[in-house]
């Protein structure tokens, strides 16, 4: 649609002008005016001059801004596409401008550390943090195998939108669906959020296997056991099984575990080759969500009656310098006898 004919359409806000945020803004801009928020004024100025963000050409319907108040005022629907670590400060800054009529969709594949009433460590999903921090009730998330490089190349892909509100699911489907991009819906938002976050741990492990030059048999073993582990952790955190066996679960897991440009995979790959964590992070230069997730999940499962050997081993590799070969040896000796029993 020509941008000149769209002035009367409500704008859609995108908070976070990273790679994924920019890719989503471009998808949305096909049908709507989009306000793309970046925290730093200099980034906004660069976007305005170069018409580019995160190395992607910006659609003409995108207007960069660094004012959250403008986003909240002009947009009923806002996509939050920042990192999990950046979310608390982001939502704190945005919350004063939000009203009950707003709809917030996030695309963050991470978890947040929190405390329960007895001051014990616990985990919250991104939607729970947004609910706690704002008056917005219509909250959704998008998750799935959405590798930015392929989205940029306009290759066919799909995502899952999840919200307890049917209205939110329908809105996102209308906004994002196109010939190249399919949007499935789910009502288990916690489950879909957990799929996106937990798969990062398995992706690090998959990277390790590739770093050790193992083949597809080993990777298939990891993916299937990883899937089982994700489901156990997800169930303990209140999710149903369904999202895990859908696009946001197994779909995203397979895509990430096969993708060498994925940050989590790449991190695991280099870790297995003996590089120090600090050096790898300096080289990647972006947030590796899996590192924070593995820390939180490891603490959580310790207090739960569930076993999560892959999580524990990945944790030890990152934080206790456990060598990759030793880690694999421990996993292969792990006394699992039943393939799958969670579906009973």
């Amino acid at each position: 649609m020509d941008s000149k004919n769209m002035y009367h359409k409500p704008s859609i806000g995108v908070v976070g002008a990273g790679r994924f945020g920019t890719a989503i803004a471009n998808l949305l801009a096909k049908k709507h005016n989009v306000l793309l928020y970046a925290r730093r004024k200099s980034v906004v100025t660069t976007m305005q001059i170069q018409k580019k963000s995160a190395k992607q050409i910006l659609h003409p319907n995108i207007t960069p801004t660094n004012q959250l108040s403008v986003i909240a005022k002009k947009c009923e629907t806002i996509f939050i596409m920042v990192s999990a670590t950046g979310l608390p400060s982001c939502i704190q800054a945005l919350a004063p401008y939000l009203s009950p009529y707003h709809t917030i969709i996030h695309g963050i594949k991470g978890l947040i550390h929190a405390k329960d009433i007895m001051q014990n460590d616990t985990i919250k999903t991104i939607s729970q943090i947004i609910t706690d921090a704002s008056v917005v009730v219509k909250i959704g998330c998008i998750s799935g195998p959405n590798l930015v490089r392929e989205l940029e190349a306009k290759q066919p892909a799909a995502t899952v939108v999840a919200s307890k509100f049917e209205e939110v699911n329908k809105t996102v489907q209308q906004l994002l669906r196109s010939v190249q991009f399919q949007v499935y819906s789910s009502h288990d938002i916690i489950g879909v959020e957990l799929c996106g976050a937990l798969k990062n741990i398995i992706a690090i492990a998959a990277g390790c296997l590739s770093g050790m030059q193992y083949g597809d048999n080993t990777k298939a073993l990891l993916i299937s056991r990883g899937m089982v582990e994700m489901i156990y952790i997800g169930k303990a955190l209140g999710a149903s099984i369904a999202p895990f066996i859908g696009l946001a679960g197994i779909g995203d897991l397979v895509a990430t575990c096969a993708n060498h440009s994925s940050r989590n995979f790449s991190f695991g790959y280099q870790l297995a080759q003996g590089k120090a964590v600090k050096d790898i992070l300096t080289e990647i230069q972006e947030t590796v969500e899996g590192i924070h997730t593995v820390q939180m999940v490891k603490k959580y499962v310790q207090k739960q009656p569930i076993r999560a050997p892959i999580t524990e081993i990945v944790y030890r590799m990152i934080f206790e310098q456990l060598p990759a070969h030793h880690a694999l040896h421990i996993l292969m000796k792990y006394p699992f006898h039943v393939d799958v029993d969670f579906l009973q």
């Binding site: 004063p96 009203s99 009950p100 009529y101 706690d132 704002s134 008056v135």
Partner: peptide, 13 residues
């Protein structure tokens, strides 16, 4: 009001 003290217009819900 929210827990942060922000006024909420319930009509908007």
């Amino acid at each position: 009001y929210t827990s942060e003290g922000k006024y909420v217009d319930t009509y908007e819900y």
